[in-house]
Design a protein around this nucleic acid. Structure first.
Lengths: 229, 229
DNA sequence: ACAACGCTTCGATCATGATCGAAATGTTCA
DNA sequence: TGAACATTTCGATCATGATCGAAGCGTTGT
């Protein structure tokens, strides 16, 4: 019997190094990063990071583009992000509740981006609010935007038709690894995150995936969305 | 910045061994297997397999139950299967199309089970047929069973309300790693696979995840579902 | 109780691959 | 052209963990 087990092992081995896992984790926000920054995140020297990055690119987990003397690395496809999401969800489950659980940075847990949508307490709160207002149906495996939900987003100025040719799903759940409950992902999730960024409701912190919720953002998420944050 | 990168690496390391990857791959059909059988699949001695299995159980990827002198191992939760699905999907993408692609066993590609639903050419054909008949809407990230679809399954004798308390989604896409296109998963997918098994349309082969399509099955899938297989 | 069987633990060996210093490459700008 | 900078390549070292033989454990059936 021939299976893809060898390829599975090979792929897993690529993620099994703490440095490379850190790099992939860092790139989960969908942005591109320089080799130096990724070396810093991984906690290794630039030459070691270079070796790791070469392997990740060779296996097509990352793609690289040259910008001047720098090289910018990013996840090759959303499929990679989706796979990592799935793995992080399992990784976040502590098999030994007695052991001190992996301490998760408070800012990270509060609000962050997950590839291109909102995650953490903020992501889950926004999702819950939309669900309670009948905008959304979502569980651990699938999601659906209601008529009211489409109208709600349209009123916020979100045009969901924009990337029409995209095969990407409108509305999809993503299991939040810090909250352990699903939050909104897919095109709708990305659109909400974009909007929040554009209106300065959230700001990316210079490093890491965590984001800062501005005063205006707090008001907006509470009043416009009805989120309890 | 604290992330779950270390836990991600640890989890990946667990899958990164060819033996363990083989074991996990073997258990993707959702059935339980003895340690001996898994040792055989992994291509290692029983004592080595025992060591691998202990690590997988300790990390809660597998659960074990004793049946007489044997120990039966199975995937701990459907979440694990879902994670492995995601990884296999990426693993099946050959980063170097020039290299000979991982040769996939013909029986495996033809028809197999993926945790608890149909996969391979059969799974995709059934899914396509249901889609073409308006029973199903499905793309790479989400799925929905139409009214006609519910009626269709009901007429086949499938009661989808049965596991009511289950939080599991009715209808969900699963990216087929051999066909590289989504097939039907979720409770509906499992129900179809169950039905096919009960009516002897498909038979599990003694070892491996591939299944045999019976003569009656070929007729049923073509006539009842309209599948082109 | 004893033998048969499946599985696990122990101990020693061995291979893989992660790491960094040193040096080379390549790009931009003056 | 040459200096400054980011990145990569090379080479040597070192740690981790996969492996199997031998022995031990636990369950079942006679």
């Amino acid at each position: 019997m021939q299976t893809i087990a060898p390829e599975l092992a090979e792929l897993a081995a690529l993620i099994a190094d703490p440095g490379r896992a850190g790099i992939l984790s860092r790139l989960m926000d969908g942005r591109a990063q320089t080799a130096s920054e990724l070396a810093r995140v991984a906690g290794v020297t630039p030459q070691t990071a270079s070796w790791h990055l070469a392997r990740l690119v060779e296996r097509a987990l990352l793609k690289v583009e040259r910008r001047g003397p720098c090289r910018l690395y990013r996840l090759a496809t959303p499929l990679i992000a989706q796979m990592l999401e799935g793995m992080m969800t399992v990784a976040a489950i502590d098999p030994h509740p007695s052991r001190p659980p992996p301490w998760i940075d408070a800012e990270m847990r509060r609000a962050r981006t997950c590839y291109d949508h909102l995650a953490g307490e903020l992501g889950v709160a926004v999702t819950d609010a939309m669900r309670e207002h009948g905008h959304l149906r979502l569980d651990q495996e699938a999601g659906e935007l209601t008529t009211s939900g489409r109208a709600f987003l349209r009123d916020l100025g979100i045009d969901l038709r924009s990337p029409t040719r995209s095969r990407r799903q409108l509305c999809r759940p993503c299991l939040d690894w810090s909250e352990r409950r699903p939050h909104l992902a897919g095109r709708a999730g990305a659109a909400v995150a974009d909007l929040a960024m554009q209106r300065d409701w959230i700001r990316r912190r210079p490093q890491g995936r965590s984001v800062e919720i501005t005063e205006a953002g707090l008001v907006a998420f509470r009043d416009l969305f009805g989120a309890r944050i």
